[in-house]
Amino acid sequence: MACLRQTLEMTVTAQSSQTMTDLELVRAAASGDAVAFERIYEQHRRRVYSLCARMLGNVEQAEDLTQEVFLQVYRKIGSFRGDSAFTTWLHRLAVNQVLMHFRKRGVKLEHTSEEGDFTNVVETPLQSTRRISMVDRLALERAIAQLPPGYRTVFLLHDVEGYEHEEISSTLGVSVGTSKSQLHKARMRLRELLSKTTSNAGE
C-alpha cells in the first residue's frame, strides 16, 4: 500500500511538473519568446492536426487549418489565464476553427442520416470481435471518414477526443439528446461500414 501511494504521489508530482512546464512555456511565448512558441507547436501539432484531418477528411485542408489554429494561438496566447489546462484551451480553439471552417463552407452538422430516422439495424454481427484488430485501425479510420459530417464531428469529439455530451452540446449548439443520438447513429453506421469491410475481406 505504501508503494502504491508513493507511485501515485510520483505520478501527481510528474503531472504537476508537466502542467507547470506548459504554463511557463505559455508565459514565455506570450512575452514573445519564439523558441517557447516553437516548443508549444512541437508538443501539440500532432493532436491538432489529427483532429483537423479526421474532422475534414482532407489532408490539404487539415494542414491549412492546423496553420490557422496555431496562428490563432500566437495571436491569443496572451489571453490564456491558466484557469484550465493549456491543452484544453488549445483544443477548444482547434474545434472552434473546424466548426468555423464548416460554417464557411455551408456544411450543416445538424442533419440526421440522409435516410431520415434510423431504421437500418444491422442484424448480422461482425464475423468475430477479433476481426477488429490492430490492422483494422486503418479500416476504422476509413470508416470514420465516410461518416456524414454531423455524425463524424460528434463521434470524433466524444469517442476520439473524450468530450462529454454536455460540452459537445454547448460547443455545437445542439441539445444533449441530439448529441447522444448522433453519437449512437455514428457508432452504428461505423459498425455497418466495418462489417462490409470484413465481409469483403472474407470473399
Binding site: R47, Y49, D136, R137, F155
Partner: peptide, 24 residues
C-alpha cells in the same frame, strides 16, 4: 451489437496521432 460497439469505442480511443508536413 453491444460487443461490436465496445470494440469500436475501444479502438477509437487508441487511434494514432498523425504528423503534419514540415511545410505547415
Amino acid at each position: 451489437v453491444r460487443d461490436d460497439l465496445l470494440q469500436i469505442v475501444h479502438f477509437s480511443r487508441q487511434l494514432p496521432l498523425h504528423t503534419p508536413s514540415s511545410e505547415v
